[in-house]
Amino acid sequence: MLKIGAHMKISKGFSKVPEVTINIGGNTFQIFTHSPRVWRITKLKENDVKGFKENMNKLNINFEDVLVHSSYLINLASPKEDVWEKSIKTMIEEIKATNDLGIIHYNFHPGSHLNEGEEFGINRILKALDLIFKEVEATNVIVLLENVAKKGSNIGYSMEQLGKIINTSYWKERLGITYDTCHGFDSNYDIREKDDVKRLINDIERNMGLEKLKMIHLNDSKYEVGAGKDRHEFIAKGYIGRKGFETFLSFNEFNKLPLLLETPGDDPEHSQDIKTIKEIFEGLKK
């Protein structure tokens, strides 16, 4: 069965998310653990956590298929000491919250070295991850690095960069990746033709192993391949297009994983995108 869902709001409480997910046609989802635009961490409410777990079980949503996304402010590659330290502290608290919710996977963008160079940035990320895992070692959470758009000083736009971080880390067994179709498209990973998808699969296998690929962010792109703009579009409405998703989802390496939408709009738009993906997938079986 296709595992499909979207990024969901937590403003009405975590306990409401599973039901709303089912209502829009999903069977998995992505959430934040608090507002992603502030450093301040909101403490989880015990009753809300309890209700969340009860509703997950009641509605048969698998905890392993759900993803927590880090807040936007986190930058483990930052040369600014205050930002770097706040990022580490915030990530520790978010991972603990992920664990308290019973969720297994936590996703973050590797960060930006702010013109200090790739080697500097990767070393900062590795040092930060070491400090973070020492604080959350007792949790069951797997931390996923998300590929990002090739723009500015971003780290993680290539499988080689992500592989370098994972393979160098002492905590390699606790690390994996999320593949974002829009970010990949931005970084010259075209998925509109089968040969290009095969090259992507080989790149993942060569640099970290396909077993490290745990989640998919399924987003169309407002711009053509290689643009480096990071502007998500509705499924089949952008430059990847319906054909691109037909090609991408024809590969078991991707269609067996949780597919999480970060497309524009809210629940009604996500419901339509989920419907479109299901139609595409069903069409591949004919």
Rank of each mutant, 00 (worst) to 15 (best):
K127L: 12
V83F: 00
D266R: 05
T181C: 02
K150N: 14
E135S: 09
K194E: 15
R192F: 06
K80H: 14
Y170H: 07
I235C: 04
F108M: 08
H217M: 13
S71L: 10
E193F: 01
G184L: 04
R206G: 02
I92L: 05
H183D: 07
E137L: 11
K16G: 02
V49K: 00
L261D: 14
E137S: 12
W39F: 09
D180Y: 00
G244W: 06
E116H: 13
I240L: 03
P18W: 12
F133Y: 12
G209K: 01
I274M: 07
T98W: 03
K164Q: 13
Y106R: 01
N55I: 05
K89C: 04
L59D: 07
E173H: 10
M56P: 10
I24H: 02
V66Y: 07
I277Y: 04
T181L: 01
H109A: 09
I280F: 05
H109F: 05
L284D: 13
V197N: 02
E246T: 03
K53I: 15
E173M: 03
V83I: 15
V83Y: 00
D220M: 03
R231M: 14
H270N: 15
S271K: 14
L67W: 05
K96F: 07
G228T: 12
K86S: 10
S70D: 15
V143T: 14
L213W: 07
I31V: 15
T90R: 10
H109C: 10
E205M: 03
N75Q: 06
G13C: 10
I277T: 09
I22M: 12
K86Q: 11
S71H: 03
D180N: 07
I4L: 14
L126N: 08
D266E: 14
F133A: 07
E116I: 01
G176D: 09
T247Y: 03
K198M: 12
V148W: 05
M208Y: 09
F254S: 12
H7G: 07
K43Y: 11
M1R: 00
P258W: 11
I74A: 02
R37P: 08
V20I: 14
H217T: 11
K3E: 11
R37G: 08
T139S: 13
I280Q: 02
S70Q: 03
A77G: 06
A97P: 00
H217F: 09
A128T: 02
F29Y: 15
L259K: 13
I155K: 04
E160T: 12
T21H: 06
V38R: 12
I274H: 02
I132E: 08
V225R: 01
P258Q: 09
S250M: 09
L129H: 02
F133I: 10
L2H: 05
S11L: 08
I165K: 04
K243N: 15
V136H: 05
N123E: 15
I41V: 14
L249C: 08
E19P: 03
I122C: 04
E135M: 00
A6G: 07
A236L: 03
L131Q: 11
A97T: 00
E253I: 08
D130R: 02
E135Y: 00
V66I: 15
L249R: 06
